[in-house]
Design a protein around this nucleic acid. Structure first.
Lengths: 368, 368
DNA sequence: TCCACCAATGTAAGCGCTTGCATTATCAAT
DNA sequence: ATTGATAATGCAAGCGCTTACATTGGTGGA
């Protein structure tokens, strides 16, 4: 399943006809929708002038404009979007493909992305790929097909041919939720590895040595990969053996987080901290801990990532990494528009994350 | 804000250019996206044949088709959606405008609607109007502008000029979540009045006389209006004075339901039953009841409408009206497609609702 | 062998709009 | 008045595709 968000909009005309001409007798007023031409005639000007009235009013003298606008009004004219796109080679539409709509993370960032686009006169078309690369590929084609002027993608990880396709179609694209200035396309996001590394550093500083992690599926997900990598690096830097990181991969669902946590707790020796790939997973872990009668953070610490609303609501409140999603959405929109309008070649922008200390992380049990 | 859902899709080409010609030196391979013409040349056939290969493969001989398909493949050709829409006057896109995406009710029905459309090769574009008629009007234009072959609307209540506009543009439309065979456009839905009336009948039969209702905003919402009307009629039929119905209108939010319930409980004499316009409102009422220490259904009964997941989860579980949303979505899709394809003039279809007895409705306190 | 017929393919006319370029109107300065 | 510059408008060529109609070639029956 996919979903699209549309903001604002232009207009068009369309009527259906079908081979199946049923013998309808009521072919009454088959007066079809008015076109630019009709307006032009009604206003006694050329179609060019009407077009200019609508698209760059200042290039038309007041009196004429009045006359045209009135004709538009009285005819109930609505420009045909498809025709406009064809002629102008521009749709003022931006496409975005996100992995899922079920996660508040993307919703929040996208909302801001959309608002920003709207302000600049663009419409957003969103669709979700359900973390399936094939679906994503299909949707990219669909969005390009529908005339998207630019595309927002999540993370860099995808087949090269997709980038080639975008290149060929000359569709500027931007990656978000990830930051890597050396990659193409440019990205507006945060360093997942660094952010998670910082959190891991905090964990290690607190005295934890037996570290476990519940990660999202890393396959085809550079954010998930980077988060794991961040933990590994922090371990190495602190003289720990990164290979001893107990890793559990699962999809981003609360139930899965609970399940993974259960498995982790069954191991012996038990990890003293469970770092989760995101807050949703962490919420699941917390729920399972409660069910199992394991006290967090007294017996085991838990950390999250993203700092969505959930993080504050659960008990204990999550120690997590705050990601300024709205800021990211806003900056991504600005940059992508600049690319589409040719005022930028595409810059990568790094968004700062911030550790949020709450209650789910403490010293390991038995520590003094 | 609006939101669109897109399923499946065709394709297109588009490249951006902008007055601002930055002096880029890397004007390397400006080979733009391939068109039908390119494919035709590559395959050594006419554009008509390529088009036929893609749209009605059986009208082209096997050998030719092979050749064409291979050219398509090797060129990485993607048809231009806008051009296709223009030429064919058909977009295989259906638009839907729902009042809100926050309500599980529409989500569920739409999901099915969408799946059904997809099966028939149509794409769904959804947008939400936030219950604002002006926004809805705008979105209808936008959807028509984007070439929707048909439109799904919720409820009949909207200005006549909108229907005129749709008529003029020859866009078949269908109303859902409401049923009234005498109205235009045709509707696929359920009798809101009858369904609510049935529930009210049950309430009255249980012995309730002091009835209160928390309704959604009835202004511009024929479903809400009909539900109120249903209660009124049932009262009248049972010899009660419909004017004595204590009515509280509010938006469909859980908090608002709670608030309204609080006000109702402050009245004296207190109603013995609070019938809610939907389950969300009822959930709010239940929450407030708990907060106020009012026992449901011992001290006061509460009913819902829709039977969404929530209805089973709350305590006590809601006595409500079950609406088969999926069935409605499916039938609406089929009917709308038939209308778009000219095989139906538009029939109205009534979906049966069903009372669901759970625990929130009991006899009034003090009844024997 | 010839012709009628039909299936396969080609030809070309738009669909409704934007926009580069040509033309005309306007007006200040000579 | 005349001229030149500039602003306002018109003209017409497409954008990439579909499809009605024309053309071609192959088939079977007389």
């Amino acid at each position: 399943m996919q979903a699209l968000t549309l903001v604002d909009g232009i207009s068009a005309v369309l009527w259906y006809d079908e081979g199946q001409d049923t013998d309808r007798h009521d072919m009454g007023k088959t007066r079809s929708a008015p076109t630019l031409n009709d307006v032009a005639k009604a206003a006694g000007v050329s179609t060019a002038t009407v077009s200019r009235c609508l698209n760059s009013p200042d290039r038309v003298i007041e009196a004429t404009r009045q006359r045209v606008l009135q004709a538009v009004e009285s005819l109930g004219y609505t420009p045909n979007f498809a025709a406009r796109v064809m002629a102008a080679k521009r749709s003022y539409t931006i496409g975005a493909i996100i992995p899922t709509m079920d996660n508040a993370i993307f919703a929040r960032g996208l909302q801001e992305f959309q608002d920003q686009l709207r302000e600049s006169g663009y419409t957003l078309l969103v669709s979700s790929s359900a973390y399936d690369p094939e679906v994503e590929r299909e949707q990219i084609r669909t969005l390009v097909a529908r005339g998207a002027d630019g595309l927002l993608l999540i993370g860099h990880a995808r087949d090269a041919d997709i980038y080639a396709y975008l290149e060929r179609h000359q569709i500027p694209s931007l990656v978000a939720w990830s930051y890597d200035p050396h990659m193409h396309p440019p990205s507006v996001g945060f360093g997942n590895a660094a952010a998670m590394g910082e959190l891991a550093q905090r964990v290690i500083s607190a005295g934890h040595r037996r570290i476990a992690m519940i990660s999202g599926i890393t396959q085809g997900n550079d954010r998930a990969q980077a988060r794991v990598e961040g933990v590994r690096q922090a371990m190495t830097e602190n003289g720990l053996n990164a290979d001893e990181l107990t890793l559990c991969e699962t999809t981003y669902e609360i139930d899965k987080g609970a399940e993974a946590f259960g498995k982790l707790m069954a191991r012996s020796p038990r990890p003293t901290v469970v770092m989760c790939g995101n807050d949703v997973l962490a919420a699941g872990a917390l729920r399972e801990a409660q069910r199992l009668g394991i006290s967090v953070p007294d017996q085991v610490s838990v950390t999250g990532f993203d700092d969505i609303e959930l993080a504050e609501i659960v008990t204990p409140a999550l120690t997590t990494v705050h990601v300024p999603h709205r800021e990211m959405g806003r900056k991504a929109a600005r940059e992508l528009i600049a690319m589409v309008e040719g005022t930028s070649e595409g810059r990568s922008i790094c968004i700062d994350t911030r550790l949020v200390d709450r209650c789910s992380l403490a010293e390991p049990p038995g520590a003094q």
